[in-house]
């Protein structure tokens, strides 16, 4: 049975390479009927289903594949892509982080590290966008409530004035002056309130620049998994490894440097994370 499955998988791979996703998916399904215990068949089918944009089916495949094999970077990687496509950024982010972690543990890590890093970033951005949308909605509700309260105050003052006029306590000219005062006061207050809300929006105030110490000196992008070398310089893990594969030297000092000499720079990673969280939005497109 299993050699038949293998043969069908090869055929499926050939279709996949040609970009015929639907045919590839059919062949992988046939292969799975022959051998339902091979996790790779599910990840391959998940990948063609991603191409076909059948996200839910892709998710099912990934989950089944993970059931069969826990240490399954590919499955988590595809899973994250499908989850972000159906707008589940929280789940997508944790899947992408799982994939990244497995990738950095494995020997041939770098081939995928950059793609996965990019996906992690996309998930974070999607997550932030949803939070931001909620925040804006909440803010406008609060602003709306307060504006309404000012409106009520104004109306109460005007009503009081009308009462006094009706009782004959105030003259007509006096009353119209007082009315203008009330109107002016209220509109000043509302203006102040709106300005306060506008100022409190950090997006309008923050300087949109990433400090140099958060930037990978090779790609010039903000780091998400920085590692430190013997001489104290930090780089994004994926890019420095890409360099070390070609030349096992420290980029700055040219001393011998190997992948095993790299250590995670945890404090810097937290600094990068915090910066991303405080400046999200623009920082993703920076």
């Amino acid at each position: 049975m299993s050699w038949q499955a293998e043969e069908l998988k090869e055929k499926g791979n050939a279709y996949f390479k040609k970009g015929e996703w639907a045919s590839a998916e059919t062949l992988y399904s046939q292969a799975i009927q022959k051998n339902s215990s091979n996790p790779l068949l599910y990840t391959n089918r998940a990948n063609s289903r991603l191409k076909l944009e059948s996200w839910r089916d892709a998710i099912d495949d990934c989950l089944r594949s993970i059931e069969l094999m826990q240490e399954n970077m590919k499955a988590y990687f595809y899973l994250a892509q499908a989850q972000i496509s159906i707008n589940h950024p929280n789940e997508a982010l944790s899947s992408a982080l799982m994939a990244y972690e497995m990738c950095s543990r494995s020997k041939q890590q770098t081939n995928n590290a950059q793609t996965i890093s990019a996906l992690v970033l996309r998930c974070k951005k999607a997550k932030w966008e949803i939070r931001e949308r909620d925040r804006l909605r909440r803010r406008s509700v609060v602003l709306g409530d307060l504006m309404q309260k000012l409106e009520i105050d104004k109306k109460r003052d005007l009503d009081e004035l009308d009462e006094r006029v009706a009782k004959g306590g105030v003259g007509k000219i006096e009353a119209s002056e007082e009315r203008a005062d009330i109107e002016k006061n209220a509109s000043n207050r509302m203006g102040d309130l709106q300005t306060a809300f506008a100022i409190s929006n950090p997006k309008e105030l923050a300087i949109r620049e990433v400090p140099d110490w958060l930037i990978d000196p090779i790609t010039f992008e903000i780091m998400h998994d920085p590692v430190i070398t013997k001489n104290g310089n930090s780089y994004e893990r994926a890019t420095i490894i890409e360099h070390l594969k070609r030349s096992a030297t420290d980029p700055l000092t040219r001393e011998i440097l190997t992948i095993n000499d790299l250590r995670p720079n945890i404090a810097l990673r937290h600094a990068c994370q915090e910066f991303m969280e405080q400046n999200s939005g623009w920082v993703y497109d920076w």
């Binding site: 000196p217 090779i218 890019t239 360099h243 070609r246 030349s247 030297t249 980029p251 700055l252 040219r254």
Partner: peptide
Amino acid sequence: DRQGWSPV
């Protein structure tokens, strides 16, 4: 040169 190059 490839040997002497550094990505920084």
